[in-house]
Design a protein around this nucleic acid. Structure first.
Lengths: 339, 339
DNA sequence: CTGAAAGCGCTTACAG
DNA sequence: CTGAAAGCGCTTACAG
């Protein structure tokens, strides 16, 4: 394979200057049709492809977007990453991916590495212990799903969405509810819990009171399974009739605990999640949850990043309640009577 | 924020030439300790960071590895991507990620995009319909898990691993077995099926014969669920006593089908998967499967890519059998007597 | 509208 | 061992 052709080769072939070649390439400046045609002819004759690196050096701008996620193995983040990649591609950009393993140090060093490569901008789904520190960066940085530093955040309106779950459970008659929260040091964890709790407490004022128990956990399967097991190991009359979890993974862990303890879902216990990962629709029973619009979130994050006026405003998009078969009417009263 | 310092600034500050700065940066050439010290002093005083783009333009070499996967949302590929990212990082490289959505066209265009960015090399987990086409590339390309074109492949020894499953099931007494295969147009699908079938047929020669039924499918949940349902909808005496699936996702789909039909696993039916995705250990019952050593696979792929002498040999690493509770002794005979 | 030329920030023969 | 200089492949004022 011979050397790749350069603008110079194209210019010679077309009988014009390299400046002209560059100008038809950019398409931004007017070039006489005749020359333009010659240049385009030369480009395809030679199979010319612009050297992205040289262009980047000259303009100190690339079309690469850096994405940092805590753990690509987490199904929701994987979905988010897939959506970001698609959104970036739609705008002619490529994606560099890094995993922080939920470690703040790794996160920071990935940011520097991206900056060294002069990416176009960085989207970060923050690690859970991400500080509020603001760092100066020569390119835009956007927080996605979880806030990074003080950078603008694109996320689901967690509180409002959690309220949807509260409504659903209350509407089904549940009055003894446990909430498995996310880590309190994550904004998402706090928002979801806050939204749920406020809504439930609101019912107490205008309707029947609800006994609400809250346990903080991590967002993963194990945490959900462990906490649910503790909750369900109690005598039936002390058990919650519904468990709302802050993530699908927790909820699926809870489902597993219920099954191990032979507690029928949804007959004896309702369980809800949050995220609508693809697995939510595959577990038994299928999980009632909140769908986070990953595509929309990703598209907004990319759009904000590419926007000229680096906006500094957060952006919230609404999640939607997906009712499946892990929730049902509360039958606790009957059980008590029978027992 | 002022402009980033360059080698020139460092050289001036240290009172040396830019060549010398570059030489201490590279560390490859001997530089007098005194000068080296001065330069290093200047570097930290100025907070100098080399411009990766300029370096790439000059050397036409970067430290970016391109990875193409069919679908990052697939848990096994996510695991693979995480491992590749880690392995790349260990070697001081960054990762660019692209999804082919199992589309050959997209795959090819991602390869070109990576080439345009003059990545150091490309690792591709091929789409299922990847052709045998060999393309000339100025950088090494390695196939991971599924072969891309004619490029060397790093993968689990699928056939041998599938044999492990066959041994396990046969040892448990199963003599009527169904195999849910992967797409026959994937090498992994064919190897796994081949390894399983050969092993089972071998038993027929030296021991009791096995009734083996094979159904081709895709690697996903839905495919497994659908095929298993068809298999299990038959009257009990015509049903297989064990279903071996070519992927965990298929197996989890099969588990779901069994549960819907109230067929007890593993009492009435054994189910096995392949991959050991994290979910395999969380479903009910926990899935017996083959662990693919994602870390090792990734590390080998990266090592091969970075190797000087572009090796052209395939590399197989052994998978291991993980026995959990979705498999058990065959009790078919008893069932028949009872019925 | 177009060409000639400078320069982005490095690395690396080439002399010495 | 070190410096001066060329050049990687582009883009973009600057003239005309």
């Amino acid at each position: 394979m011979s050397k790749m052709p350069t603008v110079k080769d194209v210019a010679e072939y077309a009988g014009v200057s390299v400046g002209t070649v560059s100008r038809v390439l950019s398409g931004e400046v007017a070039v006489k049709p005749l020359l333009r045609e010659k240049v385009n002819g030369a480009i395809s004759a030679l199979g010319y492809r612009p050297n992205v690196t040289a262009r980047a050096l000259r303009t100190s701008r690339t079309d690469v977007i850096g994405l940092i996620v805590p753990d690509i193995t987490n199904p929701f983040f994987a979905q988010l990453a897939a959506s970001v990649e698609r959104a970036a591609l739609e705008c002619g950009h490529s994606l560099m991916l890094a995993s922080s393993h939920d470690d703040r140090g790794a996160e920071r060093s990935h940011v520097s590495a991206f900056l060294d490569r002069s990416v176009r901008g960085i989207i970060v789904v923050a690690s859970s212990d991400s500080s509020g520190l603001h760092l100066e960066a020569p390119v835009p940085i956007i927080s996605l799903d979880r806030r990074f530093g003080t950078f603008p955040l694109v996320s689901t309106h967690h509180a409002r969405a959690a309220g949807l779950i509260a409504d659903h459970l209350y509407g089904l008659g549940h009055r003894r509810i446990a909430y498995i929260a996310g880590p309190p040091d994550t904004e998402a964890g706090r928002m979801r819990k806050g939204g749920f709790v406020n809504r439930i407490n609101g019912f107490g004022k205008i309707g029947e009171p609800v006994e609400l128990e809250i346990v903080d956990g991590k967002f993963d399967y194990e945490s959900g399974e462990r906490i649910a097991r503790d909750l369900l190991l109690r005598p039936p009359q002390d058990r919650p009739t519904a468990i709302a979890a802050a993530s699908d993974q927790q909820a699926i862990g809870a489902l597993r605990a219920a099954r191990d303890l032979k507690i029928d879902v949804p007959r004896k216990l309702s369980v809800t999640g949050f995220d609508d990962i693809s697995l939510a629709n595959l577990v038994v029973p299928r999980l009632t949850t909140i769908r986070q619009p990953a595509d929309k979130l990703a598209r907004r994050a990319v759009a904000l990043l590419l926007e000229e006026s680096s906006s500094t405003r957060d952006e919230m998009v609404d999640g939607s309640l997906i009712i499946r078969s892990s929730t049902g009417p509360c039958v606790r009263a009957k059980v008590n009577i029978a027992g």
